[in-house]
Design a protein around this nucleic acid. Structure first.
Lengths: 339, 339
DNA sequence: CTGTTAGCGCATTCAA
DNA sequence: TTGAATGCGCTAACAG
């Protein structure tokens, strides 16, 4: 019998027994609710600590209808490309959520399906990473739990995003400052809202600098594995060849650089290249890629903070936070004497 | 009143009421336990479907003492470098676990701390990614829930790992087949068991090919940001300069290539380089990196499968699964006419 | 084959 | 300030 008790997880009943009070008193003491004699409270807390008591999440969840879990979903279609991008966000999300006592339930989103963690009531809120989610799904989910979009936005839904247009503007402006006038825009596919916004920034920068937009300089790949090769091939057919490329993301930029060099073109001498994201590759390719840094760590942290506020705070009117990206000058743009 | 019921989450009581049976019968029907009249069962299932019933995870967990959640932890110190590596594993883990009805609770491990998801009884088992975990922690956790190590191993604990020694052996043997005799081993720091094993494979390959090991050819960085630069500097001081480098991972290899080129050395003509991991960068740097492919997707899938077996199956004696890595020939080793 | 009963561990009324 | 009673939604003995 003694053995069994020793093995059993310690519950508030056990603490109550040892403290000579009732379970409900223990519950109150542990949660700091209501007034009670300080010495009673302290005795209870001490015993709880000694016994290394941890409340059972299920029991608590059943009673309070709160799970202290936040779901985080990413579209399965995003995985191949944006992997490392979202990984940074994921870890900062977890750290921040953890500091508020929340757990992170990770799930891959499959088209229109409602994530099981939501339908089973396992999470208090849900954070969606990326643009590759059906809007209708989001609209459905919003009715179930607080939803937060990261790296994406939708009217009326809370979101943390980055100023794609502004970032692209800086990138292109930088190329212009290097003397480039014929700057191509290279993108996997225009479908992605983030890419659309970057395209807008590209056009605006050209326009503001008196360069008329030439749609022949827009090279689009296709939504598939070898899209960079397709895009580069299209690029090489442009006459005369543009002197620079603004790529919608690093993945595309890195692929382009590697393929251009295969064709005997020098980067940045023959073709300057600027990317977007400042992902893992950026610093490791040669030449190191000039790109737009997206504050992924901040995005994760802010997303977690906002979610906690949504769950516990008072300010629940949808709010969209837009972070400013930053140009990171390396060498693919033609800059010298930089890392 | 009708409204309230409409808003309430549907429970087995509601289904029982509509089906004209008791809640326990509904429970049995839903879980397929015990025998019962087929028509009763079907009626219950139909109603459940119509009402879009989903069992409440907490209630079920409280009653069965199973959470249907698996925790996945990664050391905070691993995050900066192995990010993208573990991301692939993470998504395949989730997909596989999900197909068995399990959820993935992601958490970052902090030194000796017991993950809260374990102490709060939120997970049935726990998967640890990577080598950067205190053994003592693992020993502690093993007493709480089934533990599975991925990309790591410890006597007596279930594990899914890759044959680092074998992979390194192939990599070095390949360099030797290109005619190299003076091959350097470049590593961030020898502390990591995976790196130690790769070092073993390096030595063994040299030995088997009649090349005596020269410890001056081992260049170690340091556990910090600029370690590749330090390592490359050391490398450049070796006289005569080795003609090839086997790097303990892609991260190091990619950094080395970029720095070597800055020094005016050609890769692979002056120095051939082979990495390990086949991470995101490998295909995107130039020259594309010859490296050892680690089947991360398989690792995740197998880990999930094994964990489910640990939780539900009979075969619980610790088992360690070692996967065979594969050499991916690109161009940094000197191979031609390959991708 | 099915209903009744009794918890699972905790929070929260309501009394005392 | 504290205790007893109740219920969260579900499963599992035990009866019937």
């Amino acid at each position: 019998m003694g053995r069994i008790i020793a093995v059993m997880r310690v519950t508030i009943h056990e603490i109550a027994r040892r403290a000579g009070v009732s379970p409900s008193t223990v519950s109150r003491a542990l949660n700091g609710k209501g007034r009670m004699r300080p010495e009673t409270r302290e005795r209870i807390l001490r015993i709880a600590r000694e016994l290394n008591y941890r409340p059972n999440a299920h029991a608590r969840g059943l009673a309070t209808k709160k799970t202290h879990c936040v779901g985080v979903g990413i579209s399965e279609r995003h995985m191949p490309v944006k992997r490392s991008f979202y990984n940074v966000i994921l870890s900062s999300l977890e750290s921040t959520l953890a500091s508020y006592g929340y757990h992170l339930v990770f799930s891959v989103l499959h088209n229109e399906e409602i994530p099981r963690c939501i339908s089973e009531g396992r999470v208090d809120g849900f954070i969606i990473l990326g643009t590759d989610v059906q809007r209708s799904l989001v609209r459905t989910l919003v009715k179930r739990v607080p939803i937060l979009l990261v790296d994406n936005h939708l009217p009326g839904v809370d979101a943390i995003a980055v100023d794609n247009t502004g970032g692209a503007y800086f990138a292109v402006e930088h190329l212009i400052s290097h003397g480039h006038r014929r700057i191509a825009f290279m993108v996997e596919t225009m479908g992605d809202p983030n890419f659309e916004e970057r395209f807008l920034g590209y056009r605006k920068a050209l326009e503001d600098h008196g360069i008329s937009f030439d749609e022949r300089l827009v090279v689009e790949g296709r939504r598939e594995r070898g899209f960079v090769r397709i895009a580069v091939r299209k690029f090489l057919e442009i006459k005369p060849l543009p002197t620079a490329i603004f790529a919608a993301n690093d993945y595309t930029a890195a692929g382009a650089i590697s393929l251009l060099r295969e064709e005997g073109l020098r980067v940045p001498e023959d073709v300057a290249v600027v990317g977007f994201d400042d992902g893992e590759v950026a610093a490791y390719i040669s030449p190191p890629l000039t790109t737009v840094f997206v504050p992924r760590g901040d995005m994760g942290r802010l997303a977690a903070l906002r979610m906690v506020e949504l769950l516990e705070g008072k300010e629940k009117r949808p709010r969209s936070i837009v972070l400013a990206p930053e140009l990171v000058r390396r060498r693919s743009c033609g800059c010298r004497y930089v890392t």
